[in-house]
Structures are given as C-alpha cells and as structure tokens.
Nucleic acid binder design. Sequence first.
DNA 1: TGATATAGGTTACTTTTTGTAAGTTATTAT
DNA 2: ATAATAACTTACAAAAAGTAACCTATATCA
Lengths: 105, 105
Amino acid sequence: MAPLCPKFEKAMQLFSKRWVGLVLSELLKGERRFSEMEADLPISGRLLSDRLKLLEKEGIVNRKVYSEFPVRIEYSLTEKGKALEPVIREIEDWAEKWVTLECEK
Amino acid sequence: MAPLCPKFEKAMQLFSKRWVGLVLSELLKGERRFSEMEADLPISGRLLSDRLKLLEKEGIVNRKVYSEFPVRIEYSLTEKGKALEPVIREIEDWAEKWVTLECEK
DNA sequence: TGATATAGGTTACTTTTTGTAAGTTATTAT
DNA sequence: ATAATAACTTACAAAAAGTAACCTATATCA
C-alpha cells in the first residue's frame, strides 16, 4: 500500500480543524475584519481568534493593523491562501450538486 | 453580506470532521476493508467505525458484506462519494505546491 | 463437542478540543 | 477623567477524540 503523502496529510489536518474552511471562504471574497467574520459565521470569538492565529502561522492569512480610532485590523489571504480557491470552489460545486438538506427530504 | 450557503456549510461540516478526508482519499483508490484502512491510516478503530457510519448515512460510502470465513466487509464509494474526487485532487495539488514540512524548514 | 482463530467491531475511560459568556486592553474622542 | 469601541482573553462547562481492553459471530480444528 502506498504510504500517505505527508504533505497531503498535513493539509488535511488543517482542513479538518473546524471552521477553517468557512473562514477561508470568507477571506476569498476579500479583506475582512474580526468582527465582520464573527458576525457572518456561526463561530465564537475565541475560536475565530484561534483559527486566525493558526492560519497566520501557516502563512495562509495576513494580519494588518491600522492605527485608527478605534483600531482596525484587516485579515486577508496570502498567495498560499489564495491558491486554495480551487479547493473551496470544488467543495461548493459538490455541495451544490449532491448535498441535500433536511428540509428537502 | 451574502449569507452562507447552507449546502456549502453542511459540506464543510462534514469535511471538518477529523479523518473524513483521509478515509475518502483511501476509498478513491478503490474498495477497502475495515482492517486495511485501520492499518493505512493513523486512525483508531473506534473513530474509523464512527466515520464510516457517518459517511454511509450521508450516502457517500457503501458497505457490502461477504459471508465468507472469516466475514469480509468491503467499503466503497457511491456516485456521491466518487464525485468528491476533484475536491481531494485539488487539496493534493495545493499540498504538493504549498505545504512545507517541519523537516524542510 | 468444545477450544481456537479471525474480521470487524464496541465499551469504558482519559485527554483534548469546542462552546459560551464575561472580562480585559489599547486607543482616543469628549 | 470618563466613556466608547474593536479586538481579543480567560474561565469554566460540554462535546469530541484518543487508547486499550473487550465482545461477537462464524468457521475450522483437535
């Protein structure tokens, strides 16, 4: 049996952290602020903070501080992050075609 | 702000269950038995059993029992499951191009 | 007939991750 | 000095994952 590719395994580990996919799909639409993402997604501040730190550490997300009043912080995708667009798009396509919601049964 | 597509959200919920991606990538290579997957992946029997049940319930995986000695059970992908191939392939491509492992730093 | 072997799980229990809500920090306008 | 605001933290409870021992059904063997 072919052993698992360690890069693929690491990528999967990242994706299977809860909320990572949704945060990425938000950021693919453009720069976002902490509170915007918190409002758009069903995720709490604690985990959003945690996931953004993780994605920043992995070089997928950029954090830019604007010293205004009140302070404004914009999150955006790096090249590495933008390269994930096809992944998200394929999931969207699959979901559109195959996922059925409870209310449709 | 455009609200989240509920189908996409449900798909993401599934993907962000730990091990789901790796189980799918195993089954994309062909039929597999419980013990084969347990050996190939760094997942315990308890969770493999749980994830296979989940994927079967979602109509992504097929479970076929062969009444031999000893009993043989083959897991395979349904059409819905096979349709996930592009998703897995895009993740593989991204991982190949962008993921760096600790030992490469 | 009864002990043994085998695949495919399940159970009981511990550790880790998530969810929730309240509290903190830094800045600045009033 | 006080109040307001965005962006986090912290503390604690609940849910999910990790681990290892155990169970079950069937078939072969002694």
